[in-house]
Design a protein around this nucleic acid. Sequence first.
DNA 1: ATACTTAATAAGAATTATTCTTAATAAGGT
DNA 2: ACCTTATTAAGAATAATTCTTATTAAGTAT
Lengths: 124, 124
Amino acid sequence: MRVTTQRVEIFREVASSCEHPDAETVYERVKERLPNISFDTVYRTLASLEDMDMIFRVDSMLPKARFDADRRPHNHFLCVKCGEVYDIFPEDGYEVKIPENSKKFGEIKDVNLQVRGICNKCRH
Amino acid sequence: MRVTTQRVEIFREVASSCEHPDAETVYERVKERLPNISFDTVYRTLASLEDMDMIFRVDSMLPKARFDADRRPHNHFLCVKCGEVYDIFPEDGYEVKIPENSKKFGEIKDVNLQVRGICNKCRH
DNA sequence: ATACTTAATAAGAATTATTCTTAATAAGGT
DNA sequence: ACCTTATTAAGAATAATTCTTATTAAGTAT
């Protein structure tokens, strides 16, 4: 895995943002520093970084994939109206409890808890 | 909301399946009974049924949306290798525990817990 | 330092899932 | 049976993402 300027910049962009940017946003921002970057490179690199567990794809139910580089355990509040994703950092000692029989389907790699609702901004 | 043949057949198709079919699968199957059904009608109707909380969209991280008409509380095991979705019906008394501070982001409508891993079939 | 090998890239075409447009159809009320 | 209007079929359009191909540059060997 070669360390290219594009990869470094794309990772830095996701890692320095707490807004769970989508591919287009990453592209627009990295383009300011690397004007020749292509859309394909952004998509390809985001996929590679995801494979390496350096970033995660946020499950947003919206057509655009969004990314998160924060590896601290946390959950997401998804606004079903505007699509905004907010980080929920659980209180100390919190742990997601999964059903006992989850493991009968296979080997568990990850658990994803998403809270959906109307965010404060959308409630006026 | 008019009760059309198409709507009835589309709902029946999702409701009678436990495989969380995608729009294309629903289209193919309903087409056997209604040969003139259009793709657009399937998409539009699935969206309407979702609005009416008669069916739900399954969060699969895959490009195709999948649907579920089972309104019993349950969770999903998603195989990250083949994309298959399995229903997890939790043992009696189980309830998803969400972080205390989830509600500070807005009004909670729904909680979604997804277990990801490699399913038994993909482990050989 | 310089050359070499090959993975990674840019550019834009292609693909996939989904949504839109428009004229025709049929549900449910009159 | 008729009328109104929501719903539909058909296919074009769009949006997000992925693929193709020739070019470039990272990391290694010289």
